[in-house]
Computed example of a mutant assay.
Amino acid sequence: MLLLRPPGVYRPQGDTRMLARALRRAGLPYGARVLDLCTGTGALALAAARAGANATAVDVSRRAVLTARLNAAVHRVPLRVLLGDLAEPVAGETFDAVLANPPYVIRAGASGPAPHSRARAWDAGADGRALLDRVCAEAPRLLAPGGLLLLVHSELCGVHTTLAALRAAGLKAAVVDRGPEPFGPVMRARAAALERHGVIGAGQRHEELVVIRADRPCRP
């Protein structure tokens, strides 16, 4: 699907493709309620909607929300797109599946970007977990009984930390996909700083991406 993407909106790439593949493998039934957090261009929400899901997309960026709405209109796909911080716009609602491709690029040794910076499309603070920890904490409230979370991020942000957080919240969590990804422009620009802080090895210019699936039990 060709998507419009203005400057400042995250470009669908390897992590998006991995999450879309995991969504297909999940085999959600027709009409499943799907929430796409940090939607960007709306790529994942649109993929879910085209497969028959009742999809909702959320992003904190007005530019991203307008982009997702425009992409839905261009492709004539029914999609609810909401502006807000993570799950705030859908407070009180539950979903059969939650998709999350939040910003996870590490800003070693420094604080996060300014609230309205374009960098917030990828920048996730000193350890890359500024949004990841929030997704893990909010997932149980968003999932209907038997619902599932599909979350993608870099191994550099702590895969075991994510798994432990989701399991502590009562979800059954495991890595369901992984693969190498060459550094893009942002990571290449930060490589020297990441090496100095011991986040990556000397000369390392790739990272492994992981997709984590977390399921809410049908019964308490």
Rank of each mutant, 00 (worst) to 15 (best):
V152A: 08
T162Y: 02
R141Y: 12
V152L: 06
R118N: 14
L163N: 09
A91V: 09
A173E: 07
L148Y: 09
A139N: 10
A165Y: 06
A45T: 02
T67D: 06
F95K: 04
S111P: 05
E93F: 00
G52T: 03
A189N: 07
A168C: 15
A169F: 00
A139Y: 04
S111Q: 13
K172P: 01
L99E: 00
A168M: 01
A73S: 14
P78Y: 07
V90I: 12
I106E: 03
L148N: 01
D85V: 05
L86N: 06
R141K: 14
A165I: 07
A168F: 11
P145F: 11
F183H: 12
G125K: 02
T161R: 15
E155H: 15
A137K: 10
A173W: 01
W122P: 01
T161N: 01
P180F: 05
A72I: 06
G125W: 03
P145D: 05
V98H: 08
V60A: 14
A165S: 06
G125S: 10
V74L: 15
G146Q: 10
P115A: 06
R50Q: 13
P180A: 12
P103S: 11
L163V: 10
A144N: 10
W122H: 01
A168N: 15
R129K: 02
A51S: 13
R190L: 15
D127H: 02
D85Y: 10
C136R: 13
V175N: 10
R190M: 14
R107P: 00
T56A: 01
V175S: 08
C157P: 07
A49L: 08
E93S: 14
C157T: 14
N54Y: 13
R76Y: 09
E181R: 11
C136F: 08
A169N: 11
L70C: 14
L149I: 06
E155A: 15
D85C: 10
L70N: 03
V58L: 03
L149A: 05
L70E: 12
A165H: 07
R167V: 03
S111F: 12
A174P: 07
A174M: 09
G84N: 11
G146E: 05
R62T: 13
L142S: 08
D96I: 05
E155N: 10
V175A: 07
A144Q: 02
V60N: 04
A57Q: 05
N54P: 00
E88W: 08
N101F: 06
H160V: 13
H75G: 08
R190K: 13
G112V: 08
L132V: 11
L166W: 04
G92T: 11
G109V: 02
T162C: 05
L70D: 00
L171K: 02
T67F: 08
D177I: 01
G92A: 10
A97Y: 02
V186P: 01
R129S: 00
Y104M: 03
A87F: 00
R178K: 13
A168D: 15
R62D: 14
T161I: 03
S61W: 04
